[in-house]
Write a protein that binds this DNA or RNA. Structure first.
Length: 846
RNA sequence: GCGAGCGUGCUGAAAUUGGUAAACAGACAGGACUUAAAAUCCUGCGGGUGGUAACACCCUUGUGGGUUCAAGUCCCACCGCUCGCACCA
């Protein structure tokens, strides 16, 4: 069979691997290796991003398997979520049916890539065999005090009567109804992620195999600030106001107090229609967040400054957020941009307390070395940083406040008013008490007969599902109709893969002890915060509930870049599919692009390369590439063009060239070949002696390729392999050497092009599939007596190359140089100094 | 505004700890084969100067400085691009 229809060959091998269960994993004495790619949402079809993601993971999985690790490489489906429900509404399809159909199709597509996946461990989060355990975990978290219910503002669509996610609010309107979205206060379930803020932040340092970028993003997200909480007494009332600040040294510059409209002091104004109006205005304003305008509501109340003892006014202000600090600030307009704007607008006092040397204009928000505190009583003349220390101490001693560390990270709201999600296992008794569902009653299953034509959450509109009984009292009770955020589903799925069919418990300690943590985790950088932070939290939370799991679930993280493709637009800014664009050179040699519309030529313009997306009309379907060129071509191209973490530029020319490369080698090896699986030592020593150069090149390639693959430098790994292949194709070799060389080639490249390699290996006498073979041994003995060419420099500039035995000393090399008549003596005769680096350079400074 | 990253041929890119810049590819150009095209194979491919030539020499990693025998790599300043966060007190 020739290589014109690779997909036929590929199908054959996929079936064979599958029937021999080559990828099924079980606990063994061998060292384990758990490689995982982020599991997909079953949207219907895989896209290029998936292809790239899973190819990267598969290369690593196969590489470690060849290197004698016990590899776990599972796959599953993140199968709850909105698109299924939208499909239900739009096309009148049952979400379950829609999802299953998509899973079947995508599974078929994934199989056609030839991934080394243990499909016996497949899980799907919308399956009650999965979410039954998830409900148990929820209850564990609940009992441990890590779950609570509180009122919170959500995006509310008043027409559809449903909560919308932020991304479903387009220009302030509901994406489906077009109604203006309101902020509505709803009672919602929360996970106490903030309990772990400090740990989650500090232990980022331990994740030394994560990209710095992701760690930095998480650090910013958790957002620590060290400061002081100061207590102010209200003159007119008995209440106190707590204020958090990171700049306590500016306390003497405080000229007002600003509160969030949600602050408890607001309860004094519940019956004040002006205040209600103002509050709504602020909430609207915070929805949009597109202006810096400052609004004020004067309370008429005052606080007493703890040091100057002067009265300062209290305001409500739109720019103070309730969920950071204590929802109250002291305004220091001289040294804070926002307070300054607010003070100007409301004609408030501005007191400068930091003297900067350049006497620049206010607000002055920096801290420079030369700065001094002024107008601040006992802090005068101190440097701001000294003043900060002193005032913190004074506040602490005087009991007017305390040192405090605040985090930006907020608790995780997990309630969704949706049908297609995991039901929250809670019931409400008649007196309104929330109780967890009894474990023996799990799973709380979703009802199948559901009507999507009602407004609001279909689950709560269901006629009977809600009503249940309390298992303890037997009295009537109502089920929670909120379902869980799908990020909850993905926060522990990697644990379930360790015990995928276990019925009684979520996962077995034996299994997780052996397989966890995930050694390499591969996915898109878009999950840098949410999914990865939630998973890190979840592991800690489970540990807190006495599950024996590691705190950090992912040892090494690899974030792959996007798959990009060229884009074209017409003069009136319509996107045009690159497939429909033709190019032409004009007389000046410029390239013009045009497309054909209604038989007429229309000029189009090349834009920059962008992430493949339907809206930009630049997507390429992996299925068509695989069926035309083969999975191996697609895999090799995906791997070899750019390093994994960088964006990949899709190019059909690249695909064609990759296919050509494989075909060339396929045809070459087809002609005349008989491989040897293992070289006899006598044969090895003979080719080593007779054909040293090629033999050593092969060894060098094994070494370089192995290191490169291990470190995810796939592009340079492939370059090294191509160098060896090009050399082999144009060099006359003995039969033994040629067999050896190509057998090494096939085995090395098999992690990238497994079908191609197995096909050729089988044809030439390999008895075993390559995945079951040991990675090729390296014979570096030949490197020892090698001649190296070192660089001869004069004043650091390269002049020529000199061949010398490896490890030659400076004296030996000088001797060689002097004898060489092609090297002018002017290079070294007047040298003042010689810099010598063994095996690298010799540099004469003249 | 804060944080992070990046800038190398026409393009994707490569370059251990500072030590031969452009490996390996793509596009393009020329040639061979062919009636022709495709496929395949060969050659060239950062810029400049000198030479008929083989070749020699000089310049070149966003810009400008610096450290060093030696800088794509380290340091300082600037310009440009990308990403994340953002009224976070």
């Amino acid at each position: 069979m020739d290589y014109s229809k690779p997909s036929i060959i590929e199908k054959k091998w996929q079936n064979l691997w599958h029937s021999r269960k080559l990828f099924s994993a079980s606990k063994e004495r061998k060292k384990k290796f758990y490689v995982l790619e982020m599991f997909p949402y079953p949207s219907g079809n895989i896209h290029m991003g998936h292809l790239r993601n899973y190819t990267i993971g598969d290369v690593i999985a196969r590489f470690f398997k060849n290197n004698q690790f016990n590899v776990l490489h599972p796959m599953g489906w993140d199968s709850f979520g909105m698109p299924a429900e939208n499909a239900a509404v739009e096309n009148n399809l049952n979400p379950q049916v829609w999802t299953e159909k998509n899973i079947n199709n995508m599974k078929k597509q994934l199989k056609s890539i030839g991934l080394s996946i243990d499909w016996e461990r497949e899980i799907s989060t919308c399956n009650d065999k999965y979410y039954k355990h998830q409900q148990k975990l929820f209850i564990d978290l609940y009992n441990a005090g890590l779950v609570y219910k509180k009122d919170s503002y959500v995006n509310w669509d008043p027409v559809d009567e449903t909560v919308l996610a932020n991304e479903q609010v387009i220009e302030g309107k509901g994406w489906r109804s077009g109604a203006i979205v309101e902020k509505k206060k709803l009672s919602q379930w929360f996970l106490r992620i903030s309990k772990f803020s400090k740990e989650l932040l500090n232990e980022l340092d331990k994740l030394n195999q994560w990209p710095d970028k992701v760690r930095a993003m998480q650090k910013n997200w958790i957002g620590v600030s060290e400061g002081v909480e100061i207590i102010f007494n209200i003159s007119e009332k008995s209440q106190k106001i707590k204020v958090f600040t990171t700049r306590p040294e500016t306390i003497f510059g405080a000229t007002f107090i600003a509160l969030s409209v949600e602050h408890e002091i607001g309860s004094f104004y519940d019956n004040d229609s002006e205040f209600t109006k103002f509050k709504n205005l602020c909430i609207k304003d915070q929805e949009k967040r597109n202006s810096d305008e400052k609004f004020a509501f004067k309370t008429g109340l005052h606080v007493i400054h703890p040091f100057s003892k002067k009265e300062i006014p209290i305001f409500f202000a739109n720019y103070v957020l309730m969920d950071y600090g204590s929802g109250a600030i002291f305004g220091c307009p001289a040294h804070d941009r926002r307070d300054y704007d607010f003070a100007l607008k409301n004609n408030l006092n501005i007191i400068k307390v930091i003297q900067d040397t350049n006497s620049s204009s206010l607000p002055y928000c920096e801290i420079k070395k030369e700065d001094k505190i002024i107008n601040s009583d006992f802090l005068d003349n101190l440097h701001p940083s000294e003043a900060k220390e002193k005032i913190t101490e004074v506040i602490h001693k005087g009991k007017t406040g305390k040192k405090k560390t605040d985090y930006r990270l907020r608790d995780w709201g997990v309630s969704r008013q949706r049908y297609w999600g995991c039901p929250i296992p809670i019931i409400y008794t008649e007196d309104g008490k929330a109780l967890p569902v009894d474990e023996k009653d799990l799973p709380v299953k979703l009802p199948e007969d559901i009507d999507f034509n009602t407004s609001g959450n279909p689950l709560s509109s269901h006629p009977t599902w809600k009503s249940t009984k309390c298992s303890k009292t037997g009295k009537r009770a109502i089920r929670e109709t909120d379902t869980l955020d799908t990020f909850f589903d993905s926060s522990w799925y990697f644990l379930r893969f360790c015990s995928p069919v276990e019925e009684s418990i979520p996962f077995k300690e034996d299994d997780t002890n052996y397989w966890m943590p995930v050694d390499h985790y591969i996915g898109g950088v878009e999950h840098a915060i949410l999914h990865l932070l939630y998973s890190r939290f979840f592991s800690r939370a489970l540990k807190y509930c006495n599950y024996n799991v590691p705190k950090e679930p992912f040892k090494k993280l690899v974030t792959q870049g996007m798959v990009c493709h060229e884009t074209f637009k017409t003069a009136d800014s319509k996107w045009i599919n690159p497939n429909n664009v033709f190019s032409e050179k004009d007389k000046k040699g410029n390239i013009n692009y045009y497309t054909k519309q209604n038989g007429e030529r229309t000029l189009v313009f090349k834009g920059r390369s962008e992430k493949m997306s339907k809206s930009k009309k630049n997507v390429v379907d992996p299925d068509s590439i695989i069926s035309n060129y083969g999975a191996d071509t697609a895999r090799l191209f995906m791997i070899s063009d750019s390093p994994p973490e960088r964006d990949l530029e899709w190019s059909i020319d690249g695909i064609k060239a990759t296919y050509k490369f494989l075909k060339k080698i396929y045809d070459h090896l087809q002609k005349d070949f008989l491989f040897i699986t293992e070289l006899e030592p006598t044969v090895t020593s003979k080719i080593k002696e007779d054909e040293t150069e090629t033999y050593n090149l092969i060894q060098k390639t094994i070494m370089g390729y192995t290191d490169d693959i291990r470190d995810y430098r796939f592009n340079t790994a492939v370059a090294k392999l191509r160098e060896m292949a090009n050399h082999a194709l144009k060099t006359k070799m003995s039969k033994n050497l040629s067999d050896y060389c190509w057998s090494i080639f096939l085995r090395l490249i098999s992690v990238i092009t497994p079908h191609f390699s197995d096909e050729l290996a089988a044809k030439s006498g390999f008895k075993e599939v390559l995945i079951n073979l040991k990675w090729p041994d390296l014979d570096s003995s030949g490197f020892d007596e090698k001649i190296v060419s070192i660089v001869l420099q004069v004043n650091g500039k390269k002049k020529s190359l000199v061949s010398v035995p490896l490890e030659s000393s400076q004296e030996d090399i000088l001797e060689i140089i002097r004898k060489n008549k092609n090297i002018p003596s002017s290079y070294y005769n007047n040298s003042k100094k010689i810099i010598f680096v063994k095996n690298r350079i010799i540099n004469f400074v003249v």
